[in-house]
Design a protein around this nucleic acid. Structure first.
Lengths: 344, 344
DNA sequence: TTGAAAGCGCTAACAC
DNA sequence: GTGTTAGCGCTTTCAA
């Protein structure tokens, strides 16, 4: 009787030796059949392949990892989800990264760490050679992990520019936030708005200032005033609500461009309180195209980051770093798109 | 000069042999210091520990995995995110699972597979012994993966009851959807509502029918009619909008209990179109406590699944399965809670 | 309490 | 083209 697929007689998965015996060749020949098929004569390859299929053989990962000094695993640290915000960007990115990695033959290993220690978790994975490389996502607020990883000579690619260290020599992929905000502002200008307010993050956020510059650029290009029309606050609904209420009272904008969907939802709250209708009375554009933007009536126009593309480029850069010899991929700055909905 | 932490002279991480040499003991003694410290004499242990710390030694995962036949990796398959729905339950669960796994010494390996083939991806990971076990999440709609994994004798724990196979003998953890819907309905009854509509999924969804039964139970317990007050539809905003419009016209409910936040958002769309205010004119309760529920004005009351607890119980069951000898943990049915917001 | 030997399953290097 | 040898770094067994 044929052993059941994927299990040899002793109950554990078949090994190279099992296949070799069945095909009547040496173990090395089986290894070559798997890794360098063109080295084998056609009939030998066919015989080995048959045995492989019959046994359902797949190389043992641990053994292969040990020998090749590679795990084909990519580490990604995820932070606890922020309740009460629309920040699902990371979750969307995780999906995209898993997909893109798979196509390159990698799996994604998720880990967490003490949120107060930006480097926690990386160290152990690195020292135990559990992953081949990392994808680093939270490059904002002067995060030390890029420098730390670089110091350890750990291969990694960043999703996000090295804002505070332009000389950093790791590859990165980012989305042009200024272009996104500019797109949003121009869209509103095209709809006839002139008094367009900016609702953004506090000044110490590089990403926030970058996005804000897109708004400024579009406004200036059309000769519209920006004075008194900008507000910087925390990334919470409550802050967005308060800030938009103040702006409405003091600057009377007819439209808002926001640094996040969370802040945009704050604007919607203010409008709801005042009996104003988004899109009809006041236009609102958010940033990130979160599920909230898609679902809230009448739909929130929002800047959408091309995370699928980001993931593909990140993996491409990773492949470069992990090839022999290592290649450093060019940095990539992608342009977001605008998803127009009822709120504008 | 001391070699830099985590790297021996030749540039790769230090090994057992490096530590042994430095501490003047055999490799085996170092291994014991790591895995069975009580076997060593106190002073030997201290000496070895010092060398370990100085070198920044951590056991190589691949080697350890090969030897112990365990990867300390848990596989979780994630499906492509459904745009246009509020279904971020999976993302929340991923976070919780990563956290719970870490505390048990496991990492989470994410993978995808052809969405049309429910078993794709599992097979390779299993045969290559890349993961120790799986967490299976999409147990609805007669999904064959549980039976398939069981047939392969692969250790796995399900988040979700084996609805279509009550005799399945794998451990599972689930949330009591009926209790959740009952909680929601009773909450509305307590607010004075009597004509409470049910907006749910199509009849072939076990989960949908389970949740619906909670509504029925609460209504019957109070002697309220349910005839004409229930609607079953697809889990999309558009379906929820249409179905709620029909219900409002034909059955004139004063409140809605929905099988998902997505459907609840559909109700909010209908209310917005008709100039009705959620919470003031018509009460609405959703299911899942998604970010949308938290952010939409005036806040959507929603049933919240205790996913953190689910993850902890899942990992506990996993630990049982992977211990020697394997233990099958008791099945767990957790009760959700209601998060009350402006919509009710 | 510590050390020596063997081997997990694989692939790199080399010999035939 | 194919087979042989060696060894990746670790833990299990057994001997000292």
């Amino acid at each position: 009787m044929t052993p059941s697929l994927g299990r040899s007689a002793n109950g554990s998965p078949p090994t190279l030796a099992d296949v070799a015996e069945r095909a009547g060749v040496s173990r090395q020949t089986v290894s070559n059949a798997v890794n360098n098929p063109d080295l084998l004569r056609a009939d030998t390859l066919a015989r080995v392949q048959l045995a492989i299929d019959e046994l359902g053989y797949l190389p043992n990962r641990a053994a292969r990892n040990l020998r090749t000094r590679a795990s084909h695993l990519i580490g990604l640290r995820i932070l606890p989800a922020q309740e009460g915000t629309a920040n699902a960007t990371m979750d969307r990115f995780v999906h995209s990264l898993v997909e893109a990695s798979r196509e390159a033959g990698y799996h994604v290993l998720l880990f967490t760490g003490d949120p107060t220690d930006p480097v926690a978790g990386y160290d152990d994975l690195l020292r135990s050679t559990a992953v081949d490389a990392f994808v680093v996502t939270d490059t904002y607020l002067g995060n030390p992990q890029a420098a730390w990883l670089a110091g350890r000579r750990a291969p990694f690619v960043a999703f996000g520019r090295p804002w505070d260290d332009p000389g950093a020599d790791h590859p990165w992929v980012d989305v042009d936030g200024a272009a996104g905000a500019e797109l949003a502002t121009k869209h509103l200008i095209g709809r006839g708005h002139e008094r367009i307010a900016w609702l953004g993050w506090r000044k110490d956020s590089f990403i926030g200032e970058d996005r804000r510059s897109g708004w400024t650029r579009a406004m200036r290009a059309h000769g519209f005033a920006t004075t008194g029309l900008a507000s910087r606050t925390e990334d919470t609904v409550a802050s967005g609500r308060e800030a938009s209420a103040v702006l409405l009272d003091e600057a009377v904008p007819s439209a808002f461009v926001c640094a996040s969907d969370t802040l945009a939802m704050g604007v919607l709250h203010t409008l709801a309180e005042r009996g104003l209708h988004p899109g009809r009375d006041v236009a609102v554009v958010g940033f990130d195209d979160s599920m909230v933007a898609q679902l809230v009536p009448p739909g929130l126009t929002s800047v959408r980051q091309p995370l699928e593309e980001v993931a593909v480029m990140v993996v491409r850069a990773l492949e470069g770093l992990l090839s022999h010899p290592p290649r450093r991929a060019d940095d990539v700055l992608l342009t977001p798109a605008l998803t127009v909905r009822g709120s504008s």
